[in-house]
Amino acid sequence: MWQFLHKMASPKYFYDISGKWIPWLGGLTVITLLAGLYYGLVKAPPDYQQGESYRIMFIHVPSAWMSMFIYVLMAMWSGINLIWNIKLADVMTVSSASLGASFTLLALVTGSLWGKPMWGAWWVWDARLTSELILLFLYLGYIALVSAIEDRRTAARAGGVLILVGVVNIPIIHYSVEWWNTLHQGPTVTKFDKPSIHLSMLIPLLIMAVSFKLYYLTVVLMRARTEVLDRERRSAWVRELFGAKPAS
């Protein structure tokens, strides 16, 4: 295991092996996505209260989960990078940021589309909506910082500090906002006792969640590969890969 992780930290090995994984991950993403959409949009029964419009949940909820999951992942990688100085960890952080921001935006947009028929408004200053919006700001701040610093390594390390500060702050922000105002329906899946969502809706939801995770993995690996190539463009193995003569 350790040996494997050690090997993964080498850019060349990462480049080779992730290239082999991507088609599989992409294939699985498509399969789970189709299955999840089929069960969610066709098979699942309409909600007794919200009718058909609840079906946007199958996009909204997984993307909201992803938005938080990716931030935590980025914090983990930043920690690894700051402690052990592993280059690949910061490649992963930088490549994840815009995906995380996109999922956050998707969660906000679908939430607002869902909110219009349900609450009668595109936007309400509800706790969870607001903390999701703040999360988007945190992502955008990170992206702005990383793109403002020219040196890639410095940018990634500075971004890492910001992400770690953010991850300490996220619970505080979340609870302060929750305390400030709440309208959103409570969590229905992560409650410790039995989830208050019916199985016929839960299963497509979980399939969609898996699919979103796979999608993230696929795309983040693609982005990380590009980033690795760009950073290592002067190294011998990249030159060899593209048929150029070794640097003299």
């Binding site: 703040i134 702005a144 500060v165 922000i173």
Partner: peptide, 8 residues
């Protein structure tokens, strides 16, 4: 941009 969200 970086600090505003943390001030909330």
């Amino acid at each position: 941009l970086l600090i505003m969200p943390l001030y909330i």
